[in-house]
Amino acid sequence: MKSLGYWLLLGLLRLLSALPYALVARAGNALGAALYKLPSHRRHVVLVNLRLCFPLKTEREREELALAHLQHVVRSYLERGFQWFGSLRTIERLVEMDSRIDLHDPHAPPTIFMGFHFVGIEVGCMLYSSRLPVAALYTRMSNTRVCELARRQRGRFGAAMIERSASAKQVVRLLRSGVPVMLAADMDHGTTGSVFAPLFGVPACTLTSVSRLAKLGGARVVPFVTEVLPAFRGYKLTIFDPLENFPTDSEALDACTMNAFLETQILRFPDQYYWVHRRFKHRPAGMPAVY
Rank of each mutant, 00 (worst) to 15 (best):
T208G: 12
M114P: 01
H44N: 09
M182Q: 11
P247Q: 04
R156D: 10
K215F: 05
D186M: 05
F246M: 00
P247G: 13
P230H: 13
R89E: 13
A25C: 09
R14V: 02
A255N: 06
L47A: 06
R278T: 10
V146I: 13
D186N: 09
P203V: 11
L19K: 06
T264L: 12
F240C: 03
L15M: 09
M1I: 05
E244H: 08
S250I: 04
Q170H: 03
I91P: 06
R131I: 00
L16W: 07
N143L: 04
L267P: 08
G124T: 05
A108I: 06
L207S: 15
A285E: 14
A214S: 13
Q153E: 11
D254A: 10
V172K: 02
T206C: 12
S76L: 04
A30P: 02
P133W: 01
T90A: 15
A159N: 03
P109H: 06
N49W: 02
G178M: 01
L16K: 04
M161V: 01
G5V: 07
N245P: 01
R145P: 04
Q83M: 15
N143R: 10
L267C: 14
V24R: 02
V276G: 04
D188P: 06
T139M: 13
M258G: 06
L149S: 01
M161A: 12
T208Y: 06
A150D: 03
L52Q: 07
A66W: 00
N143H: 12
G115M: 12
P247S: 10
P198W: 14
K236E: 07
H107Y: 08
N29E: 15
V222T: 00
L35G: 10
L243K: 03
E163Y: 02
F157P: 00
A252T: 00
N49D: 02
I101E: 08
L65A: 08
V210H: 06
L35Q: 06
V146L: 14
Y128K: 04
A108P: 06
F280K: 06
A108E: 08
H189E: 11
A214C: 09
V45H: 05
P270W: 05
I91Y: 12
P39V: 00
F261V: 01
